[in-house]
């Protein structure tokens, strides 16, 4: 599947009038209601909303894991809502990196092998695979933990392996579903620092789904979803409010960090 050349101003993510309905018995539940969303290349975007608001469903549509009931999803110039399952699987390997809340590493494989997995699908020489895996593991700070299995790594380290696995195929878009949800606050900050650093260094587009206000405060653009609709779209959020947790001021440290990231 060849990716058509993109004009630089063309969004990497285009969700065009998408709805998603599920049928529960005779009842039809509308999870997404005519969502329109564009994300620019190289952006660091957060998607926040209460449980059941439709944020995971929207993420699944963008990641090519689910198909919209109506509307189009165009990622990096490819209209994925019209691909077959086999095409979609290959597209996902090339174009999307996943970071999960519970890391979801294969427990019997080593850190190296977990990161190598997506490359096995890409018809790549053993030597090149090794090179690429070593590079990315070095980048996430795990160059010394190659032969450890997930059970021998801490939660933070496991998530670093998860991030390395998401980035190893050099995808245009990385989607992260609650990437810090299973980590304590210090580890969460480290993982966010890492994501932010990689986003800038590798010029990746990152979409983070979260309900953690501390995470939401670190993104460049924050989308808020409620009841299947995007209700707010803020750039450089100064403070983030949450219907359940009230408001949170973005710390100076975070703001400085963001500014530094933008400069470099």
């Amino acid at each position: 599947m060849s990716t058509p050349p993109l004009r630089s101003n063309e969004p990497i993510v285009l969700v065009d009038g998408c709805t998603k309905n599920y049928s529960r018995g005779s009842e039809t539940v509308s999870v997404l209601k005519s969502v329109h969303l564009e994300i620019a290349r190289g952006d660091f975007v957060g998607l926040i909303g209460p449980s059941g608001s439709g944020k995971t469903t929207l993420l699944n549509l963008i990641a090519g894991l689910d198909q919209p009931t109506t509307g189009r999803v165009v990622i990096n110039g490819v209209e994925i809502s019209s691909l077959t399952e086999a095409q979609l699987a290959l597209w996902r390997t090339n174009a999307i990196g996943f970071v999960f809340q519970f890391f979801n590493l294969i427990p019997v494989l080593t850190a190296f092998e977990n990161v190598e997995l997506p490359l096995l699908l890409l018809n790549m020489s053993r030597r090149r695979r090794r090179e690429q895996v070593l590079n990315i593991l070095e980048l996430v700070g795990l160059g010394h933990r190659l032969t450890h299995r997930p059970g021998q790594l801490s939660g933070g380290e496991q998530q670093r392996v998860g991030i390395a696995r998401a980035l190893v195929t050099d995808p245009a878009l990385v989607v992260a579903d609650e990437p810090t949800g299973d980590l304590d606050s210090r580890k969460s900050q480290e993982i966010l620092d890492l994501l932010q650093e990689l986003q800038v260094r590798l010029n990746k587009t990152i979409l983070i789904v979260t309900h953690d206000l501390a995470v939401a405060a670190r993104v460049r653009r924050l989308l808020r979803i409620s009841d299947g609709q995007l209700i707010d779209d803020t750039e450089n959020p100064e403070s983030v409010t949450h219907p359940l947790f009230g408001s949170l001021n973005v710390s100076n440290a975070a703001r400085v960090k963001r500014a530094e990231a933008a400069r470099s």
Partner: peptide, 13 residues
């Protein structure tokens, strides 16, 4: 089940 799901998400058929 989760192993399988991850493998499928990564693109394995």
């Amino acid at each position: 089940i989760k192993d399988i799901a991850v493998l499928r998400l990564l693109g394995f058929m």
